[in-house]
């Protein structure tokens, strides 16, 4: 928060103006690798036999290390578990695509779409970077709901890892 107290016309009765502004966040600290904070996302509701494509927030990775070392982003999903009957939708039924990756600075991004999120599978690799650079994408996640899946609420975890 920035507080700026402007006092005008000191001769007359006090006229005070207070301006409060919230600054936008400065770039991440030098020498670090940074990932944006994940937004809450929901899977919505669907019927057995359908494919769902939940809306996810964008992911940004910023590299201020100043090396050409690059990094890899991996994704892993847990099984989605039906909280009442214990039925699961496994990560083998999930696909992930980064779609278009927007970059700032100098870097080459290699995208790798995945159709099985069981392991920590690589979905994007940064190489030939120099100076400060960043990459942003909005993931597309597809989940196939098998026929015969039990009714109910399913929950699980999706993890992005960058190193």
């Amino acid at each position: 928060m920035v507080l700026a107290v402007l006092i005008s016309a000191p001769v007359r009765a006090t006229d005070m103006t207070l301006t409060i502004t919230t600054p936008s966040a400065p770039p991440p600290p030098a020498g670090s690798l940074t990932i944006s904070v994940p937004a809450t996302f929901d899977l919505g509701s669907s019927t057995a036999g359908a494919t769902i494509a939940p809306t996810m927030g964008s992911v940004t990775v910023t590299d201020t290390r100043g090396t050409a070392a690059g990094w890899t982003v991996g994704v892993i999903a847990s099984a989605l578990t039906n909280t009442t009957v214990g039925n699961t939708i496994t990560p083998t039924a999930m696909s992930y695509s980064t779609g278009l990756i927007t970059t700032t600075g100098t870097v080459t991004m290699l995208e790798q779409d995945q159709t099985n999120l069981t392991g920590v599978v690589p979905i994007a690799t940064a190489s030939l970077g120099s100076g400060i650079f960043s990459a942003t994408w909005t993931p597309s996640l597809d989940i196939v709901i098998a026929l015969g899946s039990a009714d109910g609420v399913y929950s699980g975890t999706l993890t992005h890892s960058v190193a």
């Binding site: 690798l33 940074t34 990932i35 944006s36 904070v37 994940p38 937004a39 809450t40 996302f41 929901d42 899977l43 996810m56 927030g57 992911v59 990775v61 989605l80 909280t83 609420v153 399913y154 929950s155 699980g156 975890t157 999706l158 993890t159 992005h160 890892s161 960058v162 190193a163």
Partner: peptide
Amino acid sequence: WAAVASTPSASGVVSINRVGIR
């Protein structure tokens, strides 16, 4: 790894982003 999680959705779905030193 340093990891940060989203607030769980109404149905309990969580998104985790983590960044690491190899």
